[in-house]
Nucleic acid binder design. Structure first.
Length: 490
RNA sequence: GGCGGCGUAGCCAAGUGGCCUAAGGCGACGGUUUGCAAAACCGUUAUUCCCCGGUUCGAAUCCGGGCGCCGCCUCCA
């Protein structure tokens, strides 16, 4: 079975075929950089990271574009609100671009830790103002937009397909509107393409309509078409952006180009924390930096970024995901189980003797690979794909000590391809004695292990157990294995 | 008020008409192993999928009603 993806536009799973044979262009709505990335960002970007990785695994040449919003995203209704970045910058008394730069770096750092592959292109909205003005000009010329007092609005009534993605119609929206219609708009559902800037507004550019700045929806249309063409294969983003953001993108792009904007719309579901929507006012807003430092009152410990990735991959990208300390803890244990199996496998691989690959194992590996691909082909069922990794863990842990280098190598290869290349949960290298790559500590623990070994040899188990207990109190766990005593941080 | 989604074991979660007397992970319990542990392995842990009706030879899966939870409709990944 070929790859099937759920297309929000048609509301069903469809076989994915790119416009151009062998190549895929994918655009994912990136962050507005006015704060550190949080668990919601993690779910969205890990989900699309796996999509990109899997497409590459399937042999596609993928161009992955993910924007950085550093201007134009308003805090409020698309007409009256302040620019989020300008607001945060004023509060911290720094230049808006300095603030954007700070959080852009923070974002990349957090995504790297989650093992998300970097996008091929990370375009900034502020670097594409010229193109945005061009698009607005085109829309005005074609009669889809109108200017009022230096601001330009999209005339939604002119675009008949408006609402096709989110399943809404204009009349209902007008009737149910909770916001005060702007006096400048012809229609309450019209949205801003270009906003007039007051003189004290820092981020502003000259345009045919005077000094101003671009509306938020515009940047994605412009950058997607600039780097991927007028019709792109896949556009991804969070479900909450389906309306109005993506609906507006479609309207602008298709009105300007007279061509379909996106073939496959993919939306990931939302994150809750302890069953509630994550929000700053609810005190359940958790950033990735807080999670990996364990510094949040909802968390009992520091969690490795990959434990967060594991939790995300355990559920489906279109299902909501509830973060809780218990859920993270469980995911962390599962993640460690995989890591330990791979570490042990590689340790064994170094000393194994050569010989033919065990055909029974090879057969099992083929079956697991097929099961994995079948799951991923079904709209990226990472939950089942991850279960294949656990099957592989069990297989690894039951391999006889006599397994050949070739057999072990074949298992390691599958771990690397499925767990590493596609899911991004298996590392290419693990620090020796997990987390203990501090040489001095390693040597000291080594000395204590030797002394304990001597005690054990003399059947002085009281001394041996005391040594183990004291190390345990210091946060170091000793494990006696057939390959000798191993240690790791608790 | 309008639109949409969800409700599966102690917890997380896949499955969406027969392969389900329901994956996988965490946890718990029993066993093997170990000087004792740890880890690992083996086994047990939902005859049942929120409730009530209906359709069907057959439903966790489809339909109707109810209850509960969540999201979008204003910025949010």
């Amino acid at each position: 079975m070929a790859l099937q993806l759920y297309n929000s536009l048609t509301r069903r799973k469809e076989e994915f075929r790119p416009l151009e044979e062998g190549r895929v262009g994918i655009y994912v709505c990136g962050p507005t950089v006015y704060g550190h990335a949080h668990l919601g960002h993690a779910k969205s970007y890990v989900s699309f990271d796996v999509l990109v990785r899997y497409l590459r695994y399937l042999g596609y040449r993928v161009t992955y574009v993910q924007n950085i919003t550093d201007v134009g995203h308003l805090t409020d209704d698309a007409d009256e609100g302040e620019d989020k970045i300008a607001k945060a910058a004023a509060k911290e008394r720094v230049h808006p671009m300095a603030l954007a730069e700070l959080y852009t770096r923070s974002f990349f750092e957090d995504m790297d830790r989650l093992c998300c592959v970097r996008p091929d292109i990370s375009p900034r909205a502020s670097g594409h103002v010229i193109e945005q003005i061009e698009l607005v000009r085109t829309l005005v010329e074609k009669g889809y937009a109108y200017e009022v007092n230096g601001s330009v609005y999209f005339d939604v009534a002119r675009f008949k397909a408006y609402g096709k993605l989110s399943g809404r119609n204009i009349e209902e929206m007008v009737a149910g509107a909770r916001i005060e219609p702007s006096p400048e708009k012809r229609n309450p559902v019209d949205f801003a393409l270009w906003k007039r800037a007051e003189p004290n507004h820092i981020m502003q550019w000259p345009s045919p309509w005077g000094m101003g700045y671009p509306g938020w929806h515009l940047e994605c249309s412009v950058m997607a078409m600039k780097y991927l063409g007028r019709t792109i294969d896949i556009h991804g983003g969070g479900l909450e952006n389906q309306f109005p953001h993506h609906e507006c993108e479609i309207a602008q792009s298709e009105a300007a180009n007279d061509a379909p904007f996106v073939r496959f719309w993919l939306h990931n579901n939302m994150v809750t924390v302890d069953g509630q929507k994550m929000g700053k006012s609810l005190n359940n807003f958790i950033t990735l930096k807080q999670a990996s430092a364990g510094k949040h009152e909802r968390l009992t410990k520091a969690y490795e970024p990959l434990a967060i990735r594991q939790l995300i991959l355990q559920s489906h990208y279109r299902s909501p995901l509830d973060f809780s300390d218990a859920a993270l803890h469980a995911a962390d244990s599962g993640y460690q189980r995989i890591a330990e199996a791979v570490t042990g496998l590689r340790r064994q691989l170094k000393v194994a003797s050569e010989g033919p690959t065990d055909q029974d194992v090879a057969g099992q590996l083929d079956a697991l690979k097929a099961k994995f691909e079948e799951a991923m082909n079904d709209d990226l069922n990472t939950s089942v794909a991850l279960s294949v990794l656990f099957d592989l863990v069990r297989l690894t842990n039951t391999l006889a000590g006599s397994a050949t280098r070739e057999t072990l190598g074949a298992v390691d290869d599958l771990f690397t391809r499925l767990g590493g290349d596609v899911l991004g949960i298996v590392k290419s290298e693990y620090a020796e004695a997990a987390g203990g790559n501090d040489e001095a500590v390693g040597k000291l623990v080594g000395i204590l292990i030797e002394q304990r070994a001597a005690a054990r040899k003399n059947k002085d188990f009281a001394a041996a157990d005391a040594a183990r207990k004291r190390l345990d109190e210091a946060g170091i766990v000793l494990e006696d294995t057939p390959q000798g005593t191993q240690w790791r941080w608790k």
